[in-house]
Design a protein around this nucleic acid. Structure first.
Lengths: 381, 381
DNA sequence: GGCGTTAATCAGGTGTACTAACAAACATGC
DNA sequence: GCATGTTTGTTAGTACACCTGATTAACGCC
């Protein structure tokens, strides 16, 4: 019905599919609100939950009783400290109610995995050599690895989260991950079928961004740059992870960053990866005296700052996080990038801006994958 | 409760406030679904609405009867054409039920306004010279102008939408619009108080993006660049308008685009505005022979493409729209920008990418402001 | 020990959407 | 011409979710 100046062609392409909402969905939402509050704020009384959510105490009691019956929540006795009135009974998330299995497939040589508690503590950590496997063989290996981790869990597993390189759609299908030999692979579905647990799959850098957002205290507008063999990014805008029209959001590695730069594996020249991958960085500093090395790293930082400035401006981000080898990233590179970013963006944007190292270290992707599961199964993030 | 590696400082700053959802909110959502469908697809039978929304016919009938009682929707007789079964009764949005008043404050010299039907047709168009007014005087003028437009409406006014330059928060407070003399001005609140109608205010470029998204058939991942005396952008990602942590999303005009470029009004050098504002563009082509002028415009296009490439990559956008004087933008500039964008982004991103002129011409902001109202009052967008 | 305060529950009511069943209005086939 | 099947829209009854108001319980304070 909108009167367009242009002809109204190709309307079907659009994605306006908001589906119906029933009272039971409202219930699920409110249930998530309670879990979310317990997750972030820790043990709370029913009355405080009611105040925090602006639901009534009656409703909260009802929700809590269901959550207790499911074993997700437990009563923790009366709140310590003297106050007037009836003492409040604290209820809290049972950290030992469920565990989450996380997989990090970022590294081509070995996959990493962990069993993680609801509170983000790593219970068990494993790694498995990939031995050059790709395609279906790799899929099989991932499935076996996941099963092994599930067996390590000391309580019921809520679900399996996977951070994978490549383009992954919103239902866990790997659209393409060239150097894994994966094309249009419904990885989430395959793993669910084989293991019988809910599985969430997302791009590794996107996953890492979620990890920092939920467990690392990152801001609601942030970009995380995952630097490894390749370079990928994950973006959270207004508190929501960005997917992109073809689920390729964050693919910054092959954006041109250096005019007439080095030849990239992708066939074009001067991609960000040609200067910012760990390999490129190592070869830039290897065998050089510290001063020269630092200057080289600073130059890469300036390139990075120049590339990110338009993104930071456009989205009005509060934080840019770097994840990768600290010896290379957290020094002249980071400082130069920060300075360049400040110089190239307007004060209103750069004033509140911080460029820092990711706070979760090697576990970013694993913890982010856990968030995928938390978010899908409990509505917590 | 999340276990952070860093200390868990400044948590209160975060914005995780998702509020409770009651059954009545679910109802409102479903009601919006119906309106949304009627808005985009035109007259529909109740049974078809039920199929489209996956609600039951009973529920749809109930919702529709309420909407008819409110005068928003009307029965349009049986559907033409022979079919088996009882003939369907079409129901459609009453285009003449309400009108919307829109204000476009982009131009510093004169404000533009319109009365717009629910279907996006401009019923009445007005303009008013600003005569250099700023601050409270300008606020008064805006209020008078809005009242005048409301008086022009030929049926009840659903609300007032305003596209304003500057940084505007999500509740219609103008945080800062320097060359209007507005700082921390609760414009929406002021206008609501004086006129007694719901008022929505947003940044003009953001508003324009919404206009193209809803009435111009733009993709769910798009960036609109509004080129005038300044340069601003509006971004829609995954179907949602981007606000930014301090509501400054889209402020691309003062991002450095040219190294060691011309001095900008903001005090820094080489901002995008120094080459892409209408003034800069006109002075770049004025008095030059066509070939030189075209080359200059193409150079600006390349600068623009270079600036936008990281944004397009990071967000995996499907479209970049240019809004402004077509004689300057829609030629060598656009072509060079498109080409540069293709060259500097990876094929997976650039393949589906289109850089084109906005389709709504001078009315982008006005129509976008109407969408602000539609979205806030009816949940339609 | 009475009083006010806070916590949590009980009882009853409203709103929302569902399923099941039905009446109305048409095309079709014999 | 009339039974048959299809589609539409409505009516009646049910389940669920949250609300308000009243009630019970446990404390500090005077």
């Amino acid at each position: 019905m909108p009167t367009t100046t242009r002809s109204s062609g190709r309307v079907g392409e659009r994605l306006r599919a908001t589906s119906k909402v029933l009272p039971e969905h409202a219930r699920a939402h409110n249930r998530s609100l309670v879990l979310q509050h317990l997750f972030h704020e820790g043990p709370t009384s029913r009355a405080d939950l009611a105040r925090a959510t602006s639901l009534t105490r009656v409703t909260i009691s009802d929700l809590v009783s269901v959550l207790i019956a499911e074993g997700l929540v437990e009563e923790l006795g009366t709140r310590p400290g003297q106050r007037v009135g009836k003492p409040a009974i604290l209820v809290g998330l049972r950290g030992d109610a469920f565990q989450i299995v996380s997989l990090d497939l970022t590294d081509a040589a070995q996959m990493r995995g962990a069993v993680i508690s609801l509170t983000g503590q790593v219970i068990e950590r494993r790694a498995l050599d990939v031995d050059g496997r790709t395609g279906d063989e790799l899929t099989d290996l991932v499935a076996r690895f996941a099963r092994l981790l599930v067996a390590q869990a000391t309580c019921p597993v809520l679900g399996i989260g996977v951070g994978s390189p490549g383009v992954v759609d919103d239902r866990g299908r790997v659209i393409e991950a060239p150097n894994r030999g994966w094309y249009d692979l419904p990885l989430a579905e395959i793993l669910t079928d084989r293991i019988g647990l809910p599985v969430q799959v997302a791009n590794d850098a996107n996953t890492a961004a979620l990890g920092e957002f939920t467990y690392g205290g990152a801001a609601a507008g942030m970009l995380l740059l995952l630097v490894g063999l390749g370079v990928g990014a994950g973006i959270v805008v207004d508190g929501i992870r960005v997917h992109g029209v073809r689920f390729a959001a964050g693919e910054l590695g092959h954006t041109t960053a250096v005019d007439d730069g080095e030849l990239c594996a992708c066939g074009r020249r001067g991609c960000l990866e040609t200067v910012l991958s760990t390999r490129a960085l190592r070869s830039a500093v290897e065998g050089k005296d510290p001063t020269t090395a630092d200057a080289d790293l600073a130059e890469v930082g300036r390139v990075l700052g120049t590339t990110l400035a338009p993104v930071v401006s456009a989205l009005n981000l509060a934080e840019v996080l770097l994840s990768g080898p600290a010896d290379l990233l957290d020094g002249p590179l980071r400082e130069a990038a920060q300075e360049t970013l400040q110089q190239r963006t307007m004060p209103a944007v750069s004033a509140g801006l911080q460029l820092r190292m990711a706070s979760l270290g090697q576990d970013v992707v694993l913890l982010g994958a856990a968030v995928l599961v938390l978010s899908a199964q409990l509505g917590v993030s």
